Simulated scan of single mutants.
Amino acid sequence: MNHTLILHQYAASPFSEKVRLMLGYKQLAWRAVTVPAVPPKPDVLALTGGYRRTPFLQIGADIYCDSALISDVLEHLQPEPVLYPPHLKGVARVFAQWADSTLFWAAMAYNLQPRGAQVLFAGLPEGLGQAFAEDRREMRAGMVQHRQPEATQAYRSYLRRISNMVEEHSFLFGAEPCVADFAAYHGLWFTRHCVPVLADIFQPTPAVLEWMDRMAALGHGQVEPLAAADAITVAAKAEPLPLAPEAFQDEHGIPLGSPVTVAADSFGTEPTAGTLVAATRTRYTLARTDPRAGTVHVHFPRIGYILRKAANP
Rank of each mutant, 00 (worst) to 15 (best):
H8N: 09
Y10V: 11
E17W: 04
L21Y: 10
W30C: 00
V33A: 07
T34P: 05
D43M: 13
V44P: 05
G50M: 09
Q58N: 00
I59F: 06
I59M: 00
A61D: 01
C65W: 09
S67Y: 04
D72Q: 07
D72F: 10
L74D: 04
L77F: 12
V82G: 12
Y84T: 13
P85L: 10
K89P: 14
A92E: 02
A92F: 11
A92Q: 12
R93A: 08
A99N: 06
T102G: 07
A106I: 03
Y110Q: 10
Y110T: 07
Y110A: 12
P114D: 01
Q118V: 11
L120T: 05
A122V: 08
A122E: 09
A122T: 09
P125M: 04
E126Y: 06
E134F: 04
E134T: 05
D135G: 11
R137A: 13
M139L: 06
M143D: 03
V144Q: 15
E150P: 14
T152R: 12
T152Q: 08
R156A: 03
S157E: 10
Y158V: 12
R160Q: 12
V166F: 02
E168L: 14
E168S: 08
G174F: 01
V179R: 03
W189F: 08
W189L: 02
P196Y: 15
P196V: 07
F202H: 06
F202C: 03
Q203F: 07
P206L: 04
P206C: 00
E210M: 11
D213G: 09
A216S: 14
A217R: 14
L226C: 01
D230M: 15
A236G: 06
K237P: 04
E246G: 07
A247F: 11
F248P: 10
P259A: 02
A264Q: 00
D265L: 05
A273T: 08
R281S: 11
T282K: 13
T285F: 13
A287E: 09
D290L: 04
P291V: 08
P291L: 08
Y305P: 00
Y305K: 12
L307Y: 09
L307K: 03
A310N: 04
A311E: 15
A311D: 13
P313F: 14
